[in-house]
Design a protein around this nucleic acid. Structure first.
Lengths: 354, 354
DNA sequence: GAGCTCGGGTGGAACGCTCCAATCGGCGAC
DNA sequence: GTCGCCGATTGGAGCGTTCCACCCGAGCTC
């Protein structure tokens, strides 16, 4: 730590050229004779010189860093998306700076501020913690933004068609014979997205002629932490004689938490209760889980999202926001089945004694 | 994009003070009179001024960014660790820059290079993709480094005591009556770590008097993608009459993949085969998985790791690397049971016809 | 009233780079 | 022999900050 880091002039001195020439060599500019190049490269090596990106970016007035803002890195759908985005960014010569907001609005605002101060070239938002007001901040700044995996009117975005996604889920349940459906969500699902998905759920319920619906909000973390209080609400719902038999979830994690909670309450999935997730996380494919779900085309979303962002950064795209809507796909596995036969006089399921 | 971003001198001009005073206000330096402060703040607001961290960091010769290098962000244990690390960093006034290497050595080298060019204050390594040679690069650079969740002699590190972890797993299986054990790993587990865990496994097997051991290497991604070829090796092993009945895995994901593969081959867990994981990922607690595992104390690891790193960054810690060894904890759930009774003449399990 | 202190404020030299305009030496053409 | 010409090389301004040394004037002490 004592010794100073070598700079471009140290390299210049050592190789007997000007700093401009060193710069030319480093940046691979043309018009540098081969012998000079070699001499410079040798000096770079001997001194252990490493260019300072801060200085470079400062003078160039642009960075090659892209900010990625995500609400919950722990949710596999997001960690997978982040991974893909990083891959694409890297291929385009950019580095990503991932910010996890943990669902805290203040944290989100702070992280975005930090990204802007660092003059990132663009920002990919995967989720909003503090609602859409952050969009105003970003707009005012004039920075390139792309929203991925949830719809946003005012910026470029690439999402799955949520209403058709929920429609797939509801129709699947209806076709199996379910007549009383419920929408499952968690506090971690951002409000706006949640509302959109819930509305789509209701709309499709109406369309298939299902008039009885319910909503379950599960505290996913509490359920996974085996906190019994987290299942009270669901327990009450499942005890009613006209309990829902089909559940469409806002995302796979909520669906998995629902299965966990339901089974802990003594109901079996899919015999007593059917569950459809939303996202298509890899772990849902495990045969022990075998989650029927509405899968999002992650690879395409990441690729297209990065493309939109690049278009903005390069100024290729102009004012009107572009919205890309992809088609989701229903993946039928083993958490859905026909509802229990209720003709024999009421629910077949009985709450397991505590 | 057309208008220039306001700089500190724009603010100075507008508020009628020098740029030094603006700087003092922004940085919250003392010796600024209240009226002046207000005037400057007003100008900041009107112009939408946002300080440029690049310039600041350049002149200060240090950044408030910490690099986090991780092999596979998709593995829950790592995404959870990254999340925790980011949280701690944020609390200390630092921002993290997460780099996923996807297990590619060249990618890892490139990402570390990018971090160093950006003059990060320190680097937290969660995993090595290209082996430990990167440590040399980091050492030569003289940057603060802390390795978290895998042991590294030459730098500060905080890990779980792997040999005692594997010992817990093996002893648990032995106590249940298993006599033929196998070690399960995947190509994603970094070589060094893998070797250490395997050796610990063998050592403890010997200690408990189990002389028959085997190794299974599962391509986790292929198993999850339902690629039958990925289970061939395991199938052959399970067909042998002296097949192992207890499996200790290098990590939870490998354990889960083993369960998946075994069950697809027709074996039941834990009736035919017992499995112990390593990591303690949250999803392992789902009752449908109920993975018996050796849990790492993630929170403590992240907290201590960040502390070690900060000590280095602030120059508080001096030369000799500090190694923190935490005790892992055995969490017994439902993937382990006594071995099937083999006294009745051989394995009870029979391969499910294809 | 001379000398001091002290709070508030300022000028300017860095920080390490890029990039533009300018320079410099051959070298072939006239 | 002089004149462009052209490739290789260089000086220096500037990117937006921080921070140190300095300045200024008001109030205090003796």
């Amino acid at each position: 730590m004592t010794r100073q880091r070598p700079t471009i002039v140290d390299v210049a001195d050592r190789s007997g050229v000007s700093k401009s020439t060193v710069s030319n060599v480093i940046r691979g500019a043309p018009n540098v004779s081969e012998p000079t190049r070699q001499r410079v490269l040798a000096a770079v090596d001997e001194l252990g010189y490493r260019p300072n990106a801060l200085a470079r970016h400062l003078v160039q007035q642009r960075t090659s860093t892209i900010g990625v803002v995500v609400g919950d890195l722990t949710n596999p759908i997001y960690s997978e998306l982040v991974k893909l985005l990083e891959q694409h960014a890297l291929a385009l010569g950019y580095t990503t700076m991932v910010s996890n907001t943990n669902g805290h609005p203040e944290r989100e605002a702070a992280r975005i501020e930090a990204l802007l101060e660092r003059r990132v070239a663009g920002i990919a938002m995967l989720q909003f913690s503090g609602g859409r007001s952050v969009i105003d901040v970003l707009h005012r700044d004039g920075i390139a933004v792309t929203v991925i995996s949830c719809f946003e009117e005012r910026t470029d975005c690439v999402t799955v068609d949520e209403s058709s996604g929920l429609a797939l889920a509801v129709r699947h349940l209806a076709e199996l014979g379910h007549e009383r459906l419920a929408y499952v969500t968690s506090p971690l699902v951002e409000e706006h997205t949640n509302r959109a998905r819930h509305e789509s759920f209701l709309r499709e319920c109406e369309r298939v002629g299902c008039s009885e619906t319910a909503v379950v909000t599960l505290d996913v973390e509490a359920v996974l932490a085996h906190d019994v209080r987290a299942t009270y609400g669901l327990g009450r719902l499942l005890e009613s004689t006209r309990r829902p038999t089909g559940f469409a979830a806002a995302n796979d994690i909520a669906a998995i938490a629902l299965i966990e909670a339901a089974e802990r309450l003594g109901a079996s999935v899919p015999q007593d209760v059917s569950v459809v997730g939303f996202d298509g996380i890899t772990l849902g494919g495990l045969s022990r889980i075998a989650l029927t779900t509405v899968a999002q085309p992650r690879e395409r979303m990441a690729a297209l999202g990065m493309r939109l962002l690049m278009d903005r950064i390069d100024g290729r795209a102009t004012s009107p926001p572009r919205h890309l809507l992809l088609e989701p796909e229903l993946v039928v596995r083993a958490t859905t089945a026909p509802p229990p036969d209720t003709n024999e006089g009421g629910a077949t399921w009985r709450r397991r004694p505590a």
